[in-house]
Write a protein that binds this DNA or RNA. Sequence first.
DNA 1: AAAACAATCAACCGCTCATAT
DNA 2: TATATGAGCGGTTGATTGTTT
Length: 307
Amino acid sequence: MGRAPCCDKASVKRGPWSPEEDELLRSYVRSHGAVGNWIALPQKAGLNRCGKSCRLRWLNYLRPDIKHGGYTEQEDLVICSLYNSIGSRWSIIASKLPGRTDNDVKNYWNTKLKKKAMAMHQHQHYNHGHSAGGGRGHAGRGTTISTLQPAPQSQCAGSYMQPSPASASSAVTTASGDGYSFGATATTYSPSHQAQAAQQLAHYNVTAATAPLAEFSPVPTPAAANSWAINMAFVDDMFLPELVGGGEFPSGDLFGGFGPLMLQDSRASSSLQELSACYFPNAQAEMWAAAADVKPPPGAGLCPSLT
DNA sequence: AAAACAATCAACCGCTCATAT
DNA sequence: TATATGAGCGGTTGATTGTTT
């Protein structure tokens, strides 16, 4: 037995909003400030709409600080990197992109960026073959990343073509994906790329200090197609330390350091996946709450097995 | 010029989670 | 503690627009 509908769908208007309806909603929010009760809003505002529809219209379209279209390369990088790391958590991804909504980011990914990412991945794959072994910034530390099992999570470019049940649910079970999924063979960054990426990310509240710059040795400037993937990997390195809460993993190497362990023992592999499945929701809750300067509610994002 | 096809994106649906009672 | 309710989220749909044949 499902729950009762939030409104009488037969009696409320549906479909595209008219300019008059937009103005009614806009003026109501202007005069009343933050909406406390969206369900009650339509009647108060004189709208024959479902409250959920009003909320969606405001959040995705009428809010004054909304940006539409015109995604920058930097935004592409952030979206792809975060998708790769945390999956289709569009609200979280959108929260790192000022002026963007989850719906907008989601549409952008599904219609454009996914193809772009796939094209990049195929380019990488073509150029370097299977032996190259991903690398996403953590290779070169004794980890045979290319042989790792994919995490049960749809991945940016790498394995998103076969999304797992986990990715279809709101409960993301893991956010690994580090090391192989984008297929970038660039395991090191040139100083110029480091500087460029750091500059690009400055306005995403990411400080260069959070990136493990010192770990990367100079390499020849990659081809243009590789550059995008490298920058994405670099963005990932910017965000992943935040995602894992900084030093929560013993090796400080995210998942890369577990590679040999995973190869030796399938039980260890499954344990790692279970561990990652637990760690990331926690870290995310803390990270994003911190980013928003609000405290998460008690127990937010906690994996049941850790509580 | 028109039909077919592809791409885009606003809106909807159903679900989970948090909170109030 | 159980239940009801609203907010928020992610997946999907369908109308519209653009492009190709």
